[in-house]
Simulated scan of single mutants.
Amino acid sequence: MQSKSQRITAKIVPESQRMNVADTHFGIRYPLVVEPMVYQFATQLAPAYKGGYWEFHTLSNGGFLMTPTLDDVFKITADNGYEGTMSAEALGITACLYAYSNLSFGECAFGETCAEHYHWLYEFAMRHSESMAIRGAID
């Protein structure tokens, strides 16, 4: 675990390692539960989002992140009343945070895994250039 003063970095997972990395972080529940829920939240938050290829990232603090490979800026409307805009990368961060939070209330070991991933990604997100928009959408 890194100290609070260290920069958290995201590293793109090579295509050939995507499923191994996802399996390492979430096991069989990745393709069955995690991935579809991230896509669902992206669509819910940004109605103009119509799908696309997503990159996988590992975080230097132990976390995992998915981001769409789009150059678009999306209008975001969150259930908490937040409205604003986000890059595709910030949308991916936000959708992952929503999914991890939602899944953290599930079964014991898997719920704990998702809670850990939420906290690791939150730590990364609060240092992101769009942290105010991300925080607005999740709080």
Score class of each variant (00 low, 15 high):
63 G>D: 08
109 A>Q: 14
41 F>K: 05
2 Q>V: 14
12 I>T: 13
125 A>L: 06
33 V>I: 15
69 T>M: 11
82 Y>R: 01
76 I>W: 00
54 W>D: 01
30 Y>V: 07
49 Y>P: 01
75 K>N: 10
32 L>C: 01
62 G>N: 10
110 F>K: 02
5 S>P: 00
116 E>K: 11
127 R>H: 14
23 D>W: 12
73 V>I: 15
94 T>R: 04
95 A>I: 01
71 D>G: 15
100 Y>H: 14
62 G>L: 06
1 M>N: 10
112 E>A: 15
123 E>T: 14
81 G>R: 07
136 G>M: 04
9 T>I: 12
69 T>F: 03
99 A>Y: 05
82 Y>T: 08
11 K>T: 15
93 I>K: 03
66 M>C: 14
77 T>G: 04
72 D>P: 00
36 P>R: 02
13 V>W: 08
112 E>Y: 09
103 L>T: 05
57 H>C: 08
42 A>N: 06
41 F>C: 01
112 E>V: 11
42 A>D: 05
9 T>V: 10
43 T>V: 00
21 V>D: 00
131 S>W: 08
129 S>Y: 13
66 M>R: 09
132 M>L: 13
128 H>G: 02
129 S>F: 09
1 M>C: 08
94 T>C: 06
57 H>Y: 15
7 R>N: 04
85 T>C: 06
38 V>N: 02
112 E>T: 13
104 S>W: 07
40 Q>E: 13
76 I>C: 05
59 L>C: 10
78 A>G: 06
8 I>Q: 08
28 I>Q: 10
126 M>T: 15
47 P>A: 08
45 L>A: 03
39 Y>P: 00
89 E>W: 00
2 Q>A: 10
62 G>I: 08
74 F>Y: 15
97 L>N: 01
35 E>A: 07
35 E>Y: 12
